[in-house]
Simulated assay, not measured.
Amino acid sequence: MSIRFAAPRHSIRNRMDDAEARAACQRPANDNGGGHSSDTALTAALRHFADHGLAAARHARLKAKAARHAGDEQGYRWWLEICRTLDRRMAQELDSQANAG
């Protein structure tokens, strides 16, 4: 038995007009808004990712926590920015925990 997938036959339109298409193409599809990293932070984050792979954000978070614990606020902010570049949600959680405590 074969299965056929087809669009529904009701009044939902399947295409955007030109103005909607131009507006939708203004930003990349994977851009979820928010702050953008500097070129320096992006380069450092990519190098960090090359060294640590998929664990790079977690490693940056640990480095940020260690810097904060040592009283190195500049180091904390640097590693937080690298973490934010790699995983925005993880960095937001880390920063909110640091500001709460």
Rank of each mutant, 00 (worst) to 15 (best):
A6M: 09
K63T: 05
E20V: 04
A98L: 11
A60C: 06
H36E: 15
A7V: 06
A50Q: 08
H10F: 12
L80T: 04
M16C: 10
R9D: 14
L94A: 01
G101A: 08
Q92K: 08
A70G: 12
Y76N: 09
M16G: 09
G53Q: 06
R15K: 15
R58M: 07
S11T: 14
N30H: 12
R27P: 03
S96R: 12
H48D: 04
L54F: 09
G101S: 07
M1N: 12
S2G: 13
G35N: 08
E20K: 14
A57G: 05
A6D: 10
N32A: 14
A24I: 07
R84L: 02
A23N: 05
R77Q: 14
H48N: 04
A60D: 01
R58G: 10
R84K: 05
G35Q: 10
L80Y: 10
T40W: 07
A60T: 00
R61Y: 03
D72S: 04
L62S: 10
R15Y: 15
D95S: 06
R77D: 11
A60G: 04
E93H: 13
A98N: 08
S37A: 14
Y76D: 09
F49H: 15
A66Y: 04
H10Q: 11
A23E: 12
T85N: 05
C25P: 01
L42F: 05
W78R: 09
C25W: 11
Y76R: 13
L54N: 08
L86Y: 00
A7D: 09
L42I: 03
G53W: 03
H10L: 11
H69I: 09
L86Q: 00
N30P: 02
N14Y: 04
E81G: 14
Q97L: 11
A66M: 07
D87R: 10
S38R: 02
A44V: 02
E20H: 06
A91C: 00
A66D: 13
H48S: 03
D87N: 15
S96K: 10
A98S: 12
R61F: 05
A70R: 12
